[in-house]
């Protein structure tokens, strides 16, 4: 694999490693201010400010959960009403066919079921999971991201990306190390 570091090897991006979260947050803010958008940060524990700094917007999950919850509630209520009032009317306990108070517990449960399942499945899918391969693992020190390394990776797909420029830019941000990541 002598051609591994060849100039022509397909590049995923350039990664910078920082010793502490403060440097990472500053670096991410500077990179965002410089115009970079396609980048991601990797840290041993969640750091809200980094997500902010790299321009992470609020996810679609809450909206999907709301839609699913309303759908589940309407579906549950209408199907009970349709069964009891239209499809198979039976007198039960001397109550009217449309005994809506009886439909509420199931309506409530199905609302929660739809909303909860959508929250879990939607979160997984919108996270891009399942993902069997991610190029950032090609970086040899990347395992430190689960221990004590704070990484910022600017991806080659970013329109502003330039091999030398981006490399120099990241080097100017007080990193411990900067390296190219092949895809």
């Amino acid at each position: 694999m002598s051609d591994r570091w060849d100039e022509k090897a397909p590049l995923y991006g350039i990664i910078a490693e920082f010793d502490n979260p403060t440097d990472l947050v500053v670096a991410a803010e500077r990179a965002y201010a410089a115009g970079y958008r396609k980048m991601d940060a990797y840290t041993p524990y969640p750091i809200e400010e980094v997500a902010h700094a790299i321009g992470h917007h609020r996810s679609l999950v809450p909206l999907l959960v709301l839609i699913a919850g309303v759908t589940g509630g309407v579906f549950a209520f209408v199907s009970q009403w349709w069964a009891a009032e239209i499809d198979y009317p039976l007198i039960i306990g001397g109550k009217p066919f449309n005994s809506w108070p009886m439909f509420i517990p199931i309506t409530f449960e199905v609302t929660i079921l739809f909303a909860a399942l959508t929250a879990v499945v939607g979160m997984i899918l919108l996270n891009g999971l399942p993902l069997p391969y991610h190029p950032v693992f090609n970086h040899k020190r990347f395992e430190r991201a689960t221990q004590d390394g704070f990484f910022l990776c600017i991806e080659a797909a970013d329109p502003m990306f330039d091999r030398t420029h981006t490399m120099n830019f990241l080097k100017s941000l007080n990193p411990r190390e900067v390296a190219e990541v092949e895809s």
Binding site: G93, G94, K95, P101, M102, I104, P105
Partner: peptide
């Protein structure tokens, strides 16, 4: 309410 209503 539901318990009262259904028990009647």
């Amino acid at each position: 309410f539901l318990i009262t209503w259904s028990g009647n």
